[in-house]
């Protein structure tokens, strides 16, 4: 019971992080049908920049919250500028090209950004200074850390804010109109180029905060951290229905739960000694409480890809999406 609750809590934390990154993918995809492969790298830059700022400020005796705020204050504009630059320099010139062209460009940009990060921050795994005091709370046999509560809370706030921008503001109306049909939106007086640029900028801002939170949560940052994270967040976006903003939130949280529960239980489920009908086959191995685990929790990274493939094959429009995926 306590493993279950514990994994639910871990899954919710992980899932809300995925959701924030997934929003960046889904907003861009919804508006220009591009998988912005380099989005994961923007997250990585967010983590790296805050890490640099916090490390630089670590000796100054400022309160931890102020240091983190300083990090955020540098990372968000920097990542926004990076997102804008990506759109402006790499994707905008290709907007009328066949669809594979911007995708290949995005893959290239992701490699380039990784190498730039490597040059700036070296190829070592960097550790975040432990500046936030972490308190553990006991809830029904499971433990929740103050950090997890902050992450989940902050993600909820950001999602609400984004929902307000998209569904409540003038810019959001323009974004939705552009996603629906850019040509008609242009005729209606929407500055399509500006709207697309703003989409990239907002997504990159969210990515910066996500990067900071991932870095603090795991205590680590590395120049390749964006690749896997980005891919998982993309899977989450597809799970919820790509292009669909509530879908990305639901998909992110669901994927986090699947991963956490999967990692928590796969060892037990694939322990062949746990099945009495099979026991006679492996008597020598299983004697004295031995086990024969086929897949351990080190397969955690596989779940996201399996979910991605299953969704794309059986329900390409995702859980909440009504768009047809096959529009190539």
């Amino acid at each position: 019971m306590d493993t279950f609750l514990q994994q639910i809590i871990n899954g919710l934390t992980l899932g809300s992080l995925y959701a924030i990154v997934a929003l960046g993918y889904t907003m861009v995809y919804g508006i220009i049908q591009l998988i912005n492969f380099a989005h994961g790298e923007v997250v990585m830059f967010g983590a790296m920049i805050t890490l640099s700022v916090i490390s630089a400020a670590a000796g100054s005796g400022l309160p931890p919250a102020a240091m983190i705020l300083m990090g955020v204050a540098v990372a968000i504009p920097a990542c926004m500028a990076l997102g804008y630059l990506l759109e402006r320099a790499a994707y905008r010139p290709l907007r009328k090209a066949p669809r594979l062209a911007p995708l290949i460009t995005a893959i290239g940009m992701s490699i380039v950004l990784q190498q730039i990060a490597l040059m700036i921050w070296s190829r070592n795994i960097l550790s975040f200074p432990q500046i936030l005091p972490v308190t553990l709370y006991e809830v029904a046999g499971a433990s929740v850390s103050s950090l997890q509560i902050i992450i989940i809370g902050l993600c909820l706030v950001m999602m609400t804010g984004l929902a307000w921008i998209v569904y409540g503001s003038r810019l959001g109306t323009a974004m939705r109109a552009t996603a629906e049909n850019p040509e008609i939106a242009r005729l209606m007086g929407v500055d399509v180029d500006r709207v697309i640029a703003m989409t990239f900028i907002i997504g990159a801002g969210l990515a910066a905060v996500a990067g900071l939170m991932v870095g603090i949560y795991y205590g680590l940052a590395h120049y390749t951290m964006g690749a896997t994270l980005g891919l998982k967040a993309f899977s989450a976006a597809v799970l919820g229905g790509i292009g669909n903003i509530p879908g990305a939130m639901v998909g992110g949280i669901l994927l986090g739960l699947v991963e956490a529960l999967g990692a928590g239980y796969i060892g037990e489920l694939t322990d062949l000694c746990g099945y009495s009908t099979l026991n006679f086959l492996f008597q020598s191995r299983c004697a004295d409480g031995g086990n024969l685990v086929l897949f351990g929790s080190n397969y955690q990274d596989v779940f996201a890809f399996v979910v991605l493939i299953l969704v794309l094959v059986f329900r390409p429009s995702g859980l909440l999406g009504e768009r047809v995926a096959d529009r190539a």
Binding site: R99, D301, L308, I309, L312, D326, A328
Partner: peptide, 17 residues
Amino acid sequence: KLRGDYLAIVTLGFGEI
């Protein structure tokens, strides 16, 4: 059934698996 970018991502996932 998949085309274009979706295929790219699924094949990428396959390689990682």
